[in-house]
């Protein structure tokens, strides 16, 4: 009996607590409806790569500090999913961790969507290994040999006799990811009709899972964006990459200077021209984004563009206005 009455007592208590918590969220709604904005308001719909998501999200946040009336919603359905919505005319801006491909160009053309490509940051695709592994540098050929679609490499010593006799455990992003696309089409075989890597690896769309996997498995290797290595440096070892001119470590400097090839990759946003010209909010957002690019890249934890590339992006953005 006592247990029943106890239950009857606690249950509404929990319920009330839950609703009180929910209500808290709405308590100071509209508090930051500040003045000081330049009168522009409206909505900006951004979708696309989850890699670029932190940047476009940061741009929205910083813009809202100046102008809270612009409503930016950023989704992350992946580079491919983003272009699908973008070319159907559903979004204003699409994030991409690779350039738009031919099929997507055709889809955009079919719908009459004109767009402008803006490079917003550089990422260094980082090949990491378990920290205890006695391998420090891979040539691009070895990397290709390891990840090629028909690869049977299962032991580090097969790549190079000087490497330890240790089984390899592979971790990598899933096939929907722009990171996977980049590895397959830019590193492994630029001429392949259907770019791919080998498929017998542990795949996850969540890079933190890949970090845990490589950090926890002896002989493991994997690849993902630089920021995930940067945040987990004590658990992982990044391999230097030899693209023909000696071993180069992944870092902001080497990626910016163009030395970390071919794994330094550009990150893009694609802006719909008509949205930029017809929707003041989109114009405001894009202008702010480009103007404060290095600060946004820092907040989003990416490598800012070199001066040359930034100048290119700026002039591309100027071309948006028609």
């Amino acid at each position: 009996m006592t247990s029943t009455s106890f239950r009857r007592g606690i249950v509404p208590g929990v319920a009330v607590l839950a609703f009180a918590l929910t209500a808290c969220g709405g308590a100071d709604a509209g508090a930051e409806e500040g003045s000081g904005s330049n009168g522009v308001s409206g909505q900006v719909a951004v979708d696309g790569s989850s890699t670029v998501f932190p940047m476009s999200d940061a741009a929205g946040e910083l813009l809202n500090e100046e102008n809270p009336d612009i409503q930016v919603s950023v989704s992350e359905s992946g580079t491919g999913g983003g272009f699908e919505a973008f070319c159907a005319g559903d979004t204003d801006i699409s994030n991409a961790s690779r350039p738009i491909d031919e099929e997507e160009v055709a889809a955009c053309e079919a719908e009459g969507i004109e767009y402008t490509e803006l490079q917003v940051a550089t990422d260094a695709l980082t090949v990491v290994v378990h920290p205890d592994l006695a391998v420090d540098c891979l040539t691009v050929d070895q990397l290709v040999q390891l990840w090629a679609p028909d690869s049977k490499v299962a032991n580090w010593s097969e790549l190079d006799p000087s490497f330890p006799d240790q089984d390899i455990a592979l971790f990598g992003p899933g096939t929907d990811s722009g990171t996977y696309d980049y590895m397959a089409s830019e590193v492994i075989d630029p001429d392949a009709e259907e770019p791919a890597t080998r498929q017998d690896y542990e795949a996850s769309e969540d890079d933190n899972v890949l970090v845990q996997g490589v950090a926890g498995t002896e002989g493991a290797t994997g690849y993902f964006g630089y920021t995930y290595y940067e945040e987990n440096q004590e658990q992982l070892k990044a391999l230097q990459i030899d693209g023909g001119e000696g071993c180069v470590e992944p870092s902001a400097e080497t990626a910016q200077a163009g030395e970390y090839t071919p794994l330094a990759r550009p990150l893009f946003v694609y802006v719909k021209n008509t949205a930029y010209n017809d929707n003041a909010a989109v114009k405001e957002y894009v202008d702010f984004y480009i103007e404060n690019l290095s600060q946004i890249a820092e907040v989003g934890q990416f490598i800012p563009l070199s001066e040359d590339l930034y100048a290119e992006t700026q002039s591309a953005a100027e071309g948006l206005a028609s």
Partner: peptide
């Protein structure tokens, strides 16, 4: 927070 919300709803149902 989500767990508390769900438990709250379930608690309401039991109540």
């Amino acid at each position: 927070v989500l767990l508390v919300m769900i438990l709250g709803l379930n608690g309401l149902a039991i109540f």
